[in-house]
Design a protein around this nucleic acid. Structure first.
Lengths: 163, 163
DNA sequence: CATAGGATCTACAGTCGCTGTAGGTTCAAG
DNA sequence: CTTGAACCTACAGCGACTGTAGATCCTATG
């Protein structure tokens, strides 16, 4: 190895991502074009490594690449106010909070499903039942019409081409 | 409207998803082919509505469509033991729990970032800094080599075709 | 110095779960 | 009868990668 430069494989390993991911980042422009050896292979210095760490860390925090692109843009001219960075982070925080709330509800429901599924047959398995049941639905949609329809269950398929 | 059958738009609205999503589900086979009117429009009965509710509810619980397909398969022959359904639900519970743990860590970090970003300039903005800093990284990757490389910052680009 | 095999290269297709678009047809109300 | 919303098919696009094929490069060993 020459001059302490990293190959793409070494860079990727350090950042905890795949080689293809690094190439992808270069392709979409969040990573700059790498320098090349005479044999056309990419070589990376510490600045690349830092930038990639920044990107990966942002991704791990759930920021979309677009937001990361913005943050990188902000970081590139450091005399700027950080109001925008703050704004991006706050938006992300809201996002994360709502995901947590939803996931907690999901967790409770899954636990209920599992507790109630005690090795019987599917016919009385709560896992299936809970999933099928509107009453447990997080989405506040209509229930009345579906039940109404299910009362008129017998005569449906007239005026139909095929069933 | 004839015979209490639902149009695709009505069905989608009831399930809280888009019309295209319903067509997509039909296409990939998690929803059965719908009956058609003479004018070739889809019509749905209560069984379809229930199945779609099942699917959407599963998706909201974070199940991938593949797992839902399995659950539907199980639900379709109810004499089966529910061990498999239980297994799927347990796997999903683990998944959800680990997502919650991760998200809580992210939330804490984002809050820290925001608190410390008090309208200064980017240069001392924690949002940027935290993202750039290896020490806050969730991924347990190497830090030594990158720092080592950054010490030899000056002489890098010999043996390179271009910078 | 030759060679083997691992790492890299480009280019492109595939993943998941939708979402959007274009260009046409059907349906129900006025 | 006309209008316009809702429907139809077919396909492209999204985000963020991941995988593949087939060629080339790099380096360690014989």
């Amino acid at each position: 190895m020459v001059e302490n430069l990293l190959t793409i494989g070494q860079l990727a390993e350090r950042a905890g991502c795949k080689v293809q991911t690094v190439r992808y980042y270069e392709q979409i422009g969040v990573m700059p074009k790498a320098a090349r050896t005479e044999g056309n292979q990419r070589r990376y210095g510490p600045r690349h490594a830092k930038r990639l760490a920044f990107i990966r860390h942002g991704r791990e925090l759930g920021f979309p690449l677009d937001a990361i692109r913005n943050l990188l843009g902000l970081a590139d001219n450091p005399n700027h106010s950080c109001a925008q960075a703050d704004h991006i982070a706050r938006a992300q925080l809201k996002n994360v909070e709502s995901r947590i709330i939803r996931l907690r509800a999901l967790k409770a429901e899954l636990e209920r499903m599992i507790v109630q599924c005690r090795g019987g047959t599917i016919a009385d398995c709560r896992v299936i039942e809970v999933l099928a049941d509107h009453a447990h639905c997080l989405h506040p949609h209509d229930t009345g019409a579906a039940r109404q329809a299910s009362r008129t269950n017998g005569a449906t398929n007239r005026a139909l081409r095929s069933a």
